[in-house]
Design a protein around this nucleic acid. Structure first.
Lengths: 205, 205
DNA sequence: TGTACATCAGTGAACGCGCGTTCACTGATGTAC
DNA sequence: TGTACATCAGTGAACGCGCGTTCACTGATGTAC
């Protein structure tokens, strides 16, 4: 077969990547196949060498976003790699609620960008969403006093996601920042994560 | 003018109501004008006696949802009218995070249903969203110890909204309920609202 | 190594369906007298 | 009160654009010999 299989695979992934970003930013219906292919440096017709329908691409895009080690990828990009334990948990919270993450509309955590869409979507998408959510809960849970770790981890997750979701939906950067700051204080205070390793207390934000 | 102005107004509001419910449930692009008019008991053509475009209707629908005393309407529907102070705050939290509110996809608080759409929308919609958000924050703020009332109110709002948003986006009713329960415990514990008026402590949920 | 052929990723024009929008029409009700 | 006329909310068929999808074609690269 001419054009090596790897090259085709690369193109395919370029398409999925473009799709992920565009869907993320504008939603399913507001993005055309033309947009996606152009964004990937291709033309309309070639699309169907890689996918059967637009919907199929959508599910791949979401899946890439949600399943494919979303937490690891995100963590690698946003958090210094060598932190451990409560220090890691604190850094994740700081990075999650940071201005930088707030502004990154294409690449941000899908729990923030997609919930309304997912709530209206099918089983597959909801299942993937749950997977990512569970990963986030696990990180928190592992760094909390055991007696009510799970309960606390669930509400911390809801708080972090909620603060970001709401921040994104308003047109007032000051209020948005205030909400994220309030959430951060609340998380760090209730968990005690602000009291560990004072030497690196000011790093992320 | 035949057909009294009131009758026309009634029809118009019936259309907006249908639109609000359908948009809320399925999103803008997935609802056709035909759907909306049928749902309102009318036919396609009549639409343009009331609105210029589908988008205009959308903005009216959202506006009705968001601006038009959303908090008061919601409060009236979901919370016993005569409660006051911290008791009211507690009841609102309980109702907000209740199973009933969780299941009411058409009529639920727009902060939960719309954030992804609004985040992708224009200034007008975001402004309206902020209005509702502020109202929710105010209720909380008025019932918290003054020294950091605002900060606490902001994070409580994020927590309540986040818990509902995330609950809706997963396909596991058990986990969804667990998240809402965890959020409720967290809110009531950090605010102390669970410690007031023990006589009516079990009412809502 | 070179030549002939096969494959298929990618192109771009064309197709056709769905849906937003328009339009000629109806008929119920309002107003004038 | 009754009659003629005007208005316009609502109808349903038709229009036309946009976009998902199809298709004939190209040309780069792989394979066979």
């Amino acid at each position: 077969m001419r054009y090596s299989a790897e090259r085709k695979q690369e193109t395919r992934e370029r398409i999925i990547n473009s799709a992920r970003r565009l869907f993320n930013r504008r939603g399913f219906a507001e993005v055309t196949i033309d947009d996606i292919m152009q964004h990937a440096g291709l033309t309309r017709g070639g699309f169907y060498r890689h996918f059967d329908t637009k919907e199929q691409l959508y599910s791949h895009a979401i899946r890439q976003f949600l399943c494919m080690s979303a937490r690891e990828r995100w963590q690698r990009e946003h958090v210094d790699g060598c932190a451990k334990g409560t220090e890691l948990a604190r850094m994740i919270v700081n990075a999650y609620l940071s201005q930088e993450h707030f502004e990154d509309r294409d690449g941000s955590c899908p729990l923030i960008t997609l919930p309304s869409d997912v709530a209206r979507g099918g089983k597959a998408v909801k299942g993937a969403f749950r997977t990512v959510l569970n990963k986030m809960v696990e990180v928190f849970e592992a760094n909390l006093p055991p007696h009510d770790a799970r309960e606390a981890a669930l509400s911390l997750t809801a708080l972090c996601v909620g603060a970001m979701v709401v921040s994104r939906a308003i047109d007032d950067a000051g209020l948005a920042a205030e909400i994220r700051a309030a959430a951060r204080v609340q998380v760090l205070r209730t968990t005690g994560w602000d009291r560990v390793s004072q030497d690196s207390a000011q790093d992320v934000l």
